[in-house]
Design a protein around this nucleic acid. Structure first.
Length: 208
DNA sequence: GAGGAGATCGTCT
DNA sequence: GACGATCTCCTCT
């Protein structure tokens, strides 16, 4: 499957996070597991900038926690939040300049039953797997999509998303997004006014 | 359906 | 020692 798709290369991520956040919409996030392949279409992202963005983890400078954001583009940055959740990001811009994109929501595409199990969501019967109300519970939110794909800081932080052999990567399968909406970011206090949240207009799988 | 509070811990001050 | 790029459950309407 996805025979005609191509893995996104480092150059895709080597630019302004706002461009990357917008361009990632419609791409497929793919996770290879022992139990099979999981995939979701990216429907919602947020950009976190290098300079002058008080909400970004990189705002206060480089630390052991956020070092990946300062590294080369196309690397996985995972952080743990509220004592409960992991959030998945990808680094942008050249080595030495911080910046990243947070993945906020996916439309489940492949391995849906396995993702539901990872989220501890019960499948009543086979028809559930095609219901929007059911699919929304799987990966419409940063913590939710990370849990569905089994993302953890110990396992994935620093991983190269752009290697075709990686167990976590992003591919372009030719899907074309019709219209993109831009709004302020969610769940932050500092620099909350900037319109840096991007999502596919009309998608029922975006968060909130 | 909306709104509020608790969970729970790594990270930085 | 405080707080956070969240989620879920519970209560009230």
């Amino acid at each position: 499957m996805f025979a005609s798709s191509t893995t996104l290369r480092p150059v895709f991520f080597n630019r302004d996070p706002r461009q990357v956040a917008r361009a990632l919409l419609g791409k497929l996030l793919i996770r290879k597991t022992r139990g099979g392949m999981l995939a979701g279409r990216i429907v919602e992202t947020e950009a976190y900038l290098a300079q002058g963005d008080a909400a970004a983890h990189a705002a206060a400078g480089k630390t052991a926690r956020n070092a990946v954001l300062f590294g080369p583009p196309g690397r996985v940055y995972v952080y743990f939040i509220y004592g409960n959740h992991y959030c998945l990001n990808v680094s942008c811009l050249p080595d030495g300049i911080a910046g990243g994109v947070l993945f906020r929501a996916l439309e489940p595409v492949m391995g849906i039953a396995q993702m539901a199990k990872a989220r501890d969501i019960e499948v009543e019967d086979e028809t559930d797997l095609a219901k929007i109300s059911f699919l929304k519970k799987i990966s419409s939110g940063p913590g939710r999509l990370s849990e569905a794909l089994g993302i953890t800081r110990a396992r994935d932080n620093g991983k190269n998303l752009t290697s075709p052999r990686s167990d976590l990567r992003i591919v372009d399968d030719g899907y074309r997004v019709r219209r993109v909406m831009v709004t302020p970011r969610i769940g932050i206090v500092k620099a909350a006014e900037h319109p840096l949240r991007y999502f596919i207009a009309g998608s029922p799988f975006v968060s909130a």
